[in-house]
Every structure is written in C-alpha cells, then in structure tokens.
Amino acid sequence: KKKIKIYIENENGEKKTIEIEVEGDIDEIAKELAKKYNVKIVKIEP
C-alpha cells in the first residue's frame, strides 16, 4: 500500500487535499474518485 495525496477542485473552485492509502493503479483510483465526487483532479503526489 502507498500513501498518496490527491489535490482536487470542486465545481465551486474550492480546493482540497485528500490523503489516502491505495493499492494498485493510482491513476485509475483517482479517476474513480473524481467521477464519484464530481471533482477535478489537480495533482497527485506519491
């Protein structure tokens, strides 16, 4: 498992940072999160 930080922006332009532990393809997981929460991924840090 890797701990990563995902910087997101919602439709109101509010920026947030999510810190999660992931296993597998980080890009795939980030895309799923973006779709699920309707946010834009700004940056992903390993």
Rank of each mutant, 00 (worst) to 15 (best):
E14G: 06
I41R: 00
K3N: 07
A34W: 05
Y7H: 09
K15A: 10
K36W: 08
K36Q: 08
V42D: 06
A34M: 12
E32N: 10
A34K: 07
Y7W: 13
E28A: 12
T17M: 13
K5I: 11
E45Q: 06
E23D: 13
I29Q: 05
G24S: 05
D25W: 06
V42P: 00
E9P: 00
I26L: 09
E21S: 07
K31S: 11
K31M: 09
I26M: 08
I20F: 08
E9F: 06
D27Y: 14
A34E: 12
Y7Q: 06
I29T: 06
K2I: 14
N10P: 01
I4F: 15
K3M: 13
V42H: 05
V22A: 12
I6W: 03
I8Q: 00
K43V: 09
E21K: 03
I6A: 02
L33V: 05
A34L: 04
I18C: 07
K43T: 06
I29P: 00
G24L: 02
I41C: 05
D27P: 06
K43Q: 08
I41S: 01
N10K: 13
E21L: 09
G24T: 04
V39N: 03
V39C: 09
I29H: 06
Y7P: 00
I4E: 00
E32F: 13
V39T: 04
V22Q: 05
D25Q: 04
K16P: 01
K3F: 14
I6M: 06
I44G: 01
N10Q: 11
E23R: 07
N10G: 13
E32D: 10
T17H: 08
K40V: 13
P46D: 14
I26W: 14
G13K: 03
K35M: 10
E14V: 12
V39L: 08
K40H: 11
K2A: 10
E19L: 11
E32H: 10
N38Q: 06
K36T: 08
K5T: 13
I8V: 14
I4P: 00
E14S: 07
I41W: 05
A30C: 14
A30H: 05
K1I: 13
I29F: 15
D27W: 12
D25T: 07
Y37N: 03
G13W: 02
E14D: 12
E23V: 13
G13E: 03
Y37G: 02
K36R: 10
I20H: 01
Y7T: 15
K36V: 07
A34T: 06
E45C: 14
I26E: 05
E14H: 07
I4T: 04
A34F: 04
K15N: 09
V22C: 07
E19C: 07
D25F: 04
N10L: 15
E45L: 07
E19F: 10
I8E: 00
E28G: 06
I26A: 06
V39I: 13
Y7C: 06
K3G: 06
N12P: 01
E45T: 07
A30L: 15
T17S: 07
V22M: 10
V22D: 06
E19R: 03
E9K: 05
I29G: 01
I6N: 00
I29K: 03
E11W: 13
V42F: 05
T17A: 05
K40N: 05
Y37K: 02
